[in-house]
Structures are given as C-alpha cells and as structure tokens.
C-alpha cells in the first residue's frame, strides 16, 4: 500500500463519466523510515475525505476500485485511509496528533 502526503488537487471538467463527482488529489509518496516526501506524485481518487497535508495510504490497480464508492471509477490509484500513527522497531515514528509540519512543503 502506497503511503504519501496529499499536496494538491486536480480539477477536470471535461472527463470520463465514471470520474464525475470524484475528488482527485495529488499524493506524493513518503518514505516510511525517514518520512521524507519524494518529488514524484500520483493522482488518486479520494475515497475517505482526505485533505491537504494528510498522510494517507492508497491502493493501486484493480485494488483501487474495491469500495462501494470507487468500484466503477476509471482510476488506478485510490486513497483508502488517513494514517493516525506508525510504529517501527518499537518506536512511534509518526503520530498525526503530534504533527506540526503537515504542510511544510508550502513554507
């Protein structure tokens, strides 16, 4: 499952019918061990109401169409969760409650 930061949105009015009414967010992958955000990005259909700066996880390919609201959508990447915390090797490496630099890339 891809983990990434929501850093923007894509608006398209002239698009396929199955994407009508979907929110398309820009997600930039984040390395789990360093929490450093990479330069590349993915456009994901939002399925859980994620917002700018949220650390989210996404599913790819046919797995991106496995929910009631995304099953017929022309999308190969969908956001399926907002991350509360990550523990690695016995340490809490990410905690949404203590997040201060969620939109740090805008500074």
């Amino acid at each position: 499952m891809l983990v990434g930061r929501v850093t923007g949105a894509v608006i398209s009015t002239n698009k396929v019918e199955s994407l009508r009414g979907t929110k398309m967010l820009i997600v930039q992958p984040v390395a789990l061990d360093t929490l450093v955000m990479s330069e590349d990005y993915v456009i994901c259909v939002d399925d859980v109401g994620a917002g700018l700066g949220d650390l989210v996880f996404c599913a790819y390919g046919s797995s991106a169409r496995q929910s009631d609201t995304s099953k017929k959508v022309a999308s190969d990447y969908s956001i399926y969760g907002i991350i509360d915390s990550i523990d690695m090797r016995g340490q809490r490496t990410y905690d949404k409650a203590k997040e201060t630099a969620a939109c740090s890339w805008q500074e």
């Binding site: 399925d47 859980v48 929910s67 969760g81 509360d84 990550i86 690695m88």
Partner: peptide
Amino acid sequence: VIGSMVSTRKCDRL
C-alpha cells in the same frame, strides 16, 4: 515485519 500502522479513518471494508 518491523512494525504496524493505525488508521481509524479508512475505507469501511478495511
């Protein structure tokens, strides 16, 4: 396996 992740706001199927 080196850890785990918690997400309360997620797709209900998960």
